[in-house]
Amino acid sequence: MPDVYTPRRLHRGEFLNLRGLRHHILRWGEPRAGQPPLVMVHGWMDVGASFQFVVDALKGDREVIALDWRGFGLSETTGADCYWFPDYLGDLDALLDAVSPAAPVDLLGHSMGGNVAMSYAGVRPQRVRRLVNLEGFGMPDVSPAAAPERLAKWLDELKDPPTLRPYATLADVAERLRKNNPRLPAAKAAWLAGHWARETPQGFQLNADPAHKLANPMLYRKAEVLACWQRITAPTLWVEGSDDQLTRFWGSRYPREDFEARLALVPGLARTVLQDAGHMLHHDKPEALAAVLEPFLA
Protein backbone atom coordinates (compact mmCIF):
# COMPACT_ATOMS: atom_id res chain seq x y z
CA MET A 1 0.00 0.00 0.00
CA PRO A 2 1.34 3.49 -0.83
CA ASP A 3 1.60 6.23 1.76
CA VAL A 4 -1.57 8.25 2.15
CA TYR A 5 -1.54 12.01 1.67
CA THR A 6 -1.70 14.05 4.88
CA PRO A 7 -3.72 17.27 4.48
CA ARG A 8 -2.22 20.50 5.77
CA ARG A 9 -5.67 21.97 6.46
CA LEU A 10 -8.37 19.67 7.80
CA HIS A 11 -11.89 20.25 6.51
CA ARG A 12 -15.14 20.11 8.46
CA GLY A 13 -17.98 18.19 6.85
CA GLU A 14 -21.46 19.73 7.15
CA PHE A 15 -24.87 19.11 5.66
CA LEU A 16 -27.24 21.78 4.36
CA ASN A 17 -30.76 21.39 3.06
CA LEU A 18 -30.73 23.05 -0.37
CA ARG A 19 -33.96 23.00 -2.35
CA GLY A 20 -35.23 19.94 -0.50
CA LEU A 21 -32.08 17.83 -0.83
CA ARG A 22 -29.44 17.17 1.83
CA HIS A 23 -26.19 18.52 0.43
CA HIS A 24 -22.73 17.86 1.80
CA ILE A 25 -20.26 20.72 2.03
CA LEU A 26 -16.64 20.86 3.19
CA ARG A 27 -15.35 23.90 5.05
CA TRP A 28 -11.78 25.01 5.63
CA GLY A 29 -10.97 28.01 7.85
CA GLU A 30 -13.29 30.54 9.43
CA PRO A 31 -15.11 33.61 8.09
CA ARG A 32 -13.08 36.81 8.24
CA ALA A 33 -14.46 40.32 8.21
CA GLY A 34 -14.09 41.92 4.80
CA GLN A 35 -12.95 38.71 3.09
CA PRO A 36 -15.47 36.74 1.00
CA PRO A 37 -15.52 32.96 1.18
CA LEU A 38 -13.96 31.08 -1.72
CA VAL A 39 -16.62 28.66 -2.97
CA MET A 40 -15.41 25.72 -5.08
CA VAL A 41 -17.63 23.48 -7.24
CA HIS A 42 -16.36 20.26 -8.76
CA GLY A 43 -16.73 18.57 -12.11
CA TRP A 44 -18.74 15.61 -13.40
CA MET A 45 -18.12 12.32 -11.55
CA ASP A 46 -15.98 14.08 -8.94
CA VAL A 47 -16.42 15.27 -5.33
CA GLY A 48 -15.75 18.41 -3.32
CA ALA A 49 -12.83 16.75 -1.51
CA SER A 50 -11.03 16.84 -4.86
CA PHE A 51 -10.00 20.43 -4.01
CA GLN A 52 -8.09 19.43 -0.85
CA PHE A 53 -4.68 19.58 -2.55
CA VAL A 54 -5.07 23.13 -3.85
CA VAL A 55 -6.60 24.29 -0.55
CA ASP A 56 -3.48 22.97 1.17
CA ALA A 57 -1.31 24.86 -1.31
CA LEU A 58 -3.01 28.22 -0.66
CA LYS A 59 -1.14 30.46 1.75
CA GLY A 60 -2.97 31.67 4.83
CA ASP A 61 -6.18 30.27 6.22
CA ARG A 62 -8.96 31.99 4.29
CA GLU A 63 -12.40 30.41 4.44
CA VAL A 64 -12.98 27.90 1.63
CA ILE A 65 -16.21 26.01 1.00
CA ALA A 66 -16.59 23.09 -1.42
CA LEU A 67 -19.92 21.55 -2.40
CA ASP A 68 -20.78 18.00 -3.39
CA TRP A 69 -23.27 18.48 -6.22
CA ARG A 70 -26.57 16.62 -5.92
CA GLY A 71 -26.05 12.94 -6.61
CA PHE A 72 -22.28 13.15 -6.00
CA GLY A 73 -20.13 12.63 -2.93
CA LEU A 74 -22.20 12.55 0.25
CA SER A 75 -25.02 14.71 -1.10
CA GLU A 76 -28.41 13.12 -1.64
CA THR A 77 -29.52 11.80 -4.98
CA THR A 78 -32.68 13.17 -6.52
CA GLY A 79 -34.38 9.79 -6.74
CA ALA A 80 -35.30 10.67 -10.31
CA ASP A 81 -33.88 9.14 -13.48
CA CYS A 82 -32.25 12.29 -14.84
CA TYR A 83 -30.22 15.33 -13.80
CA TRP A 84 -30.83 18.77 -15.28
CA PHE A 85 -28.29 21.56 -15.68
CA PRO A 86 -30.62 24.29 -14.32
CA ASP A 87 -30.82 22.38 -11.03
CA TYR A 88 -27.12 22.93 -10.49
CA LEU A 89 -27.69 26.67 -10.87
CA GLY A 90 -30.55 26.48 -8.38
CA ASP A 91 -28.45 24.52 -5.88
CA LEU A 92 -25.56 26.98 -6.19
CA ASP A 93 -27.90 29.93 -5.68
CA ALA A 94 -29.31 28.28 -2.54
CA LEU A 95 -25.80 27.49 -1.28
CA LEU A 96 -24.66 31.10 -1.59
CA ASP A 97 -27.83 32.29 0.16
CA ALA A 98 -26.92 29.96 3.03
CA VAL A 99 -23.18 30.68 3.38
CA SER A 100 -22.94 34.35 2.31
CA PRO A 101 -26.41 35.89 2.14
CA ALA A 102 -25.31 39.52 2.44
CA ALA A 103 -22.14 39.67 0.34
CA PRO A 104 -20.73 38.30 -2.94
CA VAL A 105 -18.32 35.37 -2.96
CA ASP A 106 -15.26 34.32 -4.89
CA LEU A 107 -16.42 31.41 -7.07
CA LEU A 108 -14.23 28.70 -8.60
CA GLY A 109 -15.46 25.80 -10.72
CA HIS A 110 -13.73 22.90 -12.44
CA SER A 111 -14.98 21.31 -15.68
CA MET A 112 -18.76 20.90 -15.30
CA GLY A 113 -18.54 23.09 -12.22
CA GLY A 114 -16.74 25.72 -14.28
CA ASN A 115 -19.60 25.75 -16.76
CA VAL A 116 -22.15 26.10 -13.96
CA ALA A 117 -20.10 28.89 -12.36
CA MET A 118 -19.83 30.82 -15.64
CA SER A 119 -23.57 30.65 -16.32
CA TYR A 120 -24.37 31.55 -12.72
CA ALA A 121 -22.02 34.56 -12.75
CA GLY A 122 -23.89 35.88 -15.80
CA VAL A 123 -27.33 35.28 -14.31
CA ARG A 124 -26.48 36.57 -10.82
CA PRO A 125 -23.57 38.96 -11.47
CA GLN A 126 -24.05 40.75 -8.14
CA ARG A 127 -23.34 37.51 -6.22
CA VAL A 128 -19.81 36.94 -7.57
CA ARG A 129 -16.78 39.12 -6.72
CA ARG A 130 -14.11 37.05 -8.54
CA LEU A 131 -14.70 34.12 -10.91
CA VAL A 132 -12.30 31.28 -11.75
CA ASN A 133 -12.98 28.68 -14.43
CA LEU A 134 -10.72 25.60 -14.48
CA GLU A 135 -11.17 23.94 -17.88
CA GLY A 136 -14.94 24.43 -18.06
CA PHE A 137 -14.93 24.48 -21.85
CA GLY A 138 -18.60 23.89 -22.42
CA MET A 139 -19.62 21.59 -25.24
CA PRO A 140 -20.03 21.73 -29.01
CA ASP A 141 -23.14 23.43 -30.28
CA VAL A 142 -25.78 20.91 -31.33
CA SER A 143 -28.12 21.33 -34.27
CA PRO A 144 -31.86 21.13 -33.51
CA ALA A 145 -31.99 18.38 -36.13
CA ALA A 146 -30.19 16.12 -33.64
CA ALA A 147 -33.08 16.29 -31.15
CA PRO A 148 -35.06 13.21 -32.32
CA GLU A 149 -32.01 10.95 -32.21
CA ARG A 150 -30.93 12.29 -28.81
CA LEU A 151 -34.40 11.85 -27.34
CA ALA A 152 -34.63 8.31 -28.71
CA LYS A 153 -31.28 7.46 -27.13
CA TRP A 154 -32.45 8.87 -23.80
CA LEU A 155 -35.68 6.86 -23.92
CA ASP A 156 -33.73 3.68 -24.69
CA GLU A 157 -31.35 4.27 -21.79
CA LEU A 158 -34.26 4.84 -19.39
CA LYS A 159 -35.29 1.24 -20.08
CA ASP A 160 -31.76 -0.06 -19.47
CA PRO A 161 -30.23 2.44 -17.03
CA PRO A 162 -26.46 2.60 -16.53
CA THR A 163 -24.76 1.18 -13.45
CA LEU A 164 -21.46 1.75 -11.69
CA ARG A 165 -19.43 -1.35 -10.95
CA PRO A 166 -18.14 -1.87 -7.40
CA TYR A 167 -14.44 -2.21 -6.53
CA ALA A 168 -13.03 -4.90 -4.24
CA THR A 169 -10.80 -2.53 -2.24
CA LEU A 170 -10.03 1.15 -1.83
CA ALA A 171 -6.68 0.40 -3.44
CA ASP A 172 -8.60 -0.58 -6.57
CA VAL A 173 -10.46 2.73 -6.44
CA ALA A 174 -7.13 4.56 -6.13
CA GLU A 175 -5.83 2.60 -9.12
CA ARG A 176 -8.87 3.70 -11.12
CA LEU A 177 -8.15 7.32 -10.19
CA ARG A 178 -4.57 6.98 -11.40
CA LYS A 179 -5.72 5.26 -14.58
CA ASN A 180 -7.94 8.26 -15.27
CA ASN A 181 -5.08 10.62 -14.48
CA PRO A 182 -1.56 9.12 -14.47
CA ARG A 183 -0.18 12.41 -13.12
CA LEU A 184 -1.98 11.88 -9.81
CA PRO A 185 0.58 10.73 -7.19
CA ALA A 186 -0.18 7.40 -5.51
CA ALA A 187 -0.41 8.93 -2.02
CA LYS A 188 -2.97 11.49 -3.17
CA ALA A 189 -4.95 8.83 -5.03
CA ALA A 190 -5.04 6.70 -1.87
CA TRP A 191 -6.37 9.67 0.14
CA LEU A 192 -8.92 10.71 -2.47
CA ALA A 193 -10.23 7.14 -2.90
CA GLY A 194 -11.73 7.30 0.59
CA HIS A 195 -13.81 10.31 -0.46
CA TRP A 196 -14.57 9.09 -3.96
CA ALA A 197 -16.09 5.78 -2.82
CA ARG A 198 -17.89 4.18 0.13
CA GLU A 199 -18.00 0.60 1.35
CA THR A 200 -21.16 -1.43 0.66
CA PRO A 201 -21.98 -5.14 1.01
CA GLN A 202 -21.13 -5.48 -2.71
CA GLY A 203 -17.76 -3.73 -2.39
CA PHE A 204 -16.58 -0.14 -2.66
CA GLN A 205 -19.10 1.88 -4.66
CA LEU A 206 -18.35 5.26 -6.23
CA ASN A 207 -20.12 8.18 -4.56
CA ALA A 208 -22.10 9.04 -7.69
CA ASP A 209 -25.61 8.35 -8.88
CA PRO A 210 -25.39 6.21 -12.06
CA ALA A 211 -28.20 8.35 -13.51
CA HIS A 212 -25.55 11.02 -14.21
CA LYS A 213 -24.37 8.77 -17.05
CA LEU A 214 -27.66 8.92 -18.93
CA ALA A 215 -27.71 10.75 -22.25
CA ASN A 216 -28.95 14.30 -21.70
CA PRO A 217 -32.24 14.73 -23.56
CA MET A 218 -31.70 18.50 -23.73
CA LEU A 219 -29.38 19.71 -26.47
CA TYR A 220 -26.49 22.05 -25.64
CA ARG A 221 -27.52 25.50 -26.84
CA LYS A 222 -24.41 27.56 -27.37
CA ALA A 223 -26.28 30.82 -27.99
CA GLU A 224 -28.07 30.58 -24.64
CA VAL A 225 -24.83 29.85 -22.78
CA LEU A 226 -23.01 32.75 -24.42
CA ALA A 227 -25.86 35.10 -23.56
CA CYS A 228 -25.06 34.33 -19.91
CA TRP A 229 -21.28 34.60 -20.37
CA GLN A 230 -21.60 38.09 -21.85
CA ARG A 231 -23.39 39.31 -18.71
CA ILE A 232 -20.53 38.39 -16.35
CA THR A 233 -19.26 41.46 -14.50
CA ALA A 234 -16.76 39.83 -12.11
CA PRO A 235 -13.09 39.77 -13.11
CA THR A 236 -12.68 36.27 -14.54
CA LEU A 237 -9.67 33.97 -14.64
CA TRP A 238 -9.54 31.12 -17.16
CA VAL A 239 -7.01 28.38 -16.28
CA GLU A 240 -6.19 25.34 -18.39
CA GLY A 241 -3.51 22.68 -18.52
CA SER A 242 -0.87 22.57 -21.23
CA ASP A 243 -2.09 19.10 -22.24
CA ASP A 244 -4.87 20.18 -24.64
CA GLN A 245 -7.92 18.26 -23.45
CA LEU A 246 -10.37 20.16 -25.65
CA THR A 247 -8.85 18.79 -28.84
CA ARG A 248 -8.14 15.38 -27.31
CA PHE A 249 -11.73 14.83 -26.21
CA TRP A 250 -13.80 16.57 -28.89
CA GLY A 251 -11.52 16.65 -31.91
CA SER A 252 -13.05 18.40 -34.90
CA ARG A 253 -16.51 18.43 -33.29
CA TYR A 254 -15.42 21.38 -31.12
CA PRO A 255 -12.56 23.25 -32.77
CA ARG A 256 -10.28 25.44 -30.68
CA GLU A 257 -11.26 28.47 -32.78
CA ASP A 258 -14.87 28.09 -31.62
CA PHE A 259 -13.82 28.06 -27.98
CA GLU A 260 -11.50 31.03 -28.45
CA ALA A 261 -14.38 32.99 -29.95
CA ARG A 262 -16.53 32.14 -26.96
CA LEU A 263 -13.91 33.26 -24.45
CA ALA A 264 -13.48 36.52 -26.36
CA LEU A 265 -17.05 37.43 -25.35
CA VAL A 266 -16.30 37.28 -21.61
CA PRO A 267 -15.64 40.78 -20.21
CA GLY A 268 -12.65 41.30 -17.90
CA LEU A 269 -11.00 37.98 -18.74
CA ALA A 270 -7.48 36.95 -17.74
CA ARG A 271 -5.95 33.65 -18.88
CA THR A 272 -3.16 31.33 -17.83
CA VAL A 273 -1.84 27.89 -18.79
CA LEU A 274 -0.32 25.52 -16.24
CA GLN A 275 2.59 23.57 -17.72
CA ASP A 276 2.70 19.76 -17.45
CA ALA A 277 -0.94 19.61 -16.39
CA GLY A 278 -4.00 17.97 -17.86
CA HIS A 279 -7.72 18.34 -17.22
CA MET A 280 -7.36 17.59 -13.49
CA LEU A 281 -4.95 20.48 -13.09
CA HIS A 282 -5.92 21.00 -9.42
CA HIS A 283 -4.52 17.50 -8.83
CA ASP A 284 -1.58 17.79 -11.22
CA LYS A 285 -0.21 21.18 -10.17
CA PRO A 286 -1.93 22.40 -7.00
CA GLU A 287 0.99 24.59 -5.97
CA ALA A 288 1.21 26.27 -9.38
CA LEU A 289 -2.56 26.76 -9.41
CA ALA A 290 -2.48 28.29 -5.92
CA ALA A 291 0.28 30.67 -7.03
CA VAL A 292 -1.99 31.89 -9.85
CA LEU A 293 -5.12 32.10 -7.69
CA GLU A 294 -3.69 34.08 -4.79
CA PRO A 295 -2.89 37.36 -6.58
CA PHE A 296 -6.09 37.14 -8.61
CA LEU A 297 -8.26 36.67 -5.51
CA ALA A 298 -6.36 39.15 -3.34
Rank of each mutant, 00 (worst) to 15 (best):
M1V: 05
P2W: 04
Y5S: 05
Y5R: 03
T6P: 05
R9V: 12
R9L: 13
H11D: 03
R12D: 03
R19I: 14
R22P: 05
L26R: 05
P31Y: 08
A33I: 08
L38K: 12
M40W: 06
H42Q: 11
M45K: 14
G48A: 10
Q52P: 02
V54S: 08
V54F: 13
L58T: 02
G60H: 12
L67T: 06
L67I: 11
D68V: 07
G73N: 13
T77R: 11
A80R: 09
D87I: 07
D91W: 06
V105I: 08
D106C: 11
L107Q: 00
M112D: 05
G113C: 04
S119C: 03
G122H: 07
P125E: 07
L131I: 05
E135K: 00
F137P: 10
G138W: 06
V142S: 11
L158R: 15
L158K: 14
P161N: 12
T163W: 13
L164D: 00
T169I: 11
L170F: 15
K188D: 05
K188I: 10
L192R: 10
H195M: 14
R198D: 13
P201N: 13
Q205C: 15
N207P: 04
A223I: 08
E224K: 02
P235A: 00
G251P: 09
Y254C: 02
A261F: 09
V266D: 02
G278D: 14
M280C: 05
D284K: 11
A291P: 09
L293W: 00
E294H: 04
P295E: 02
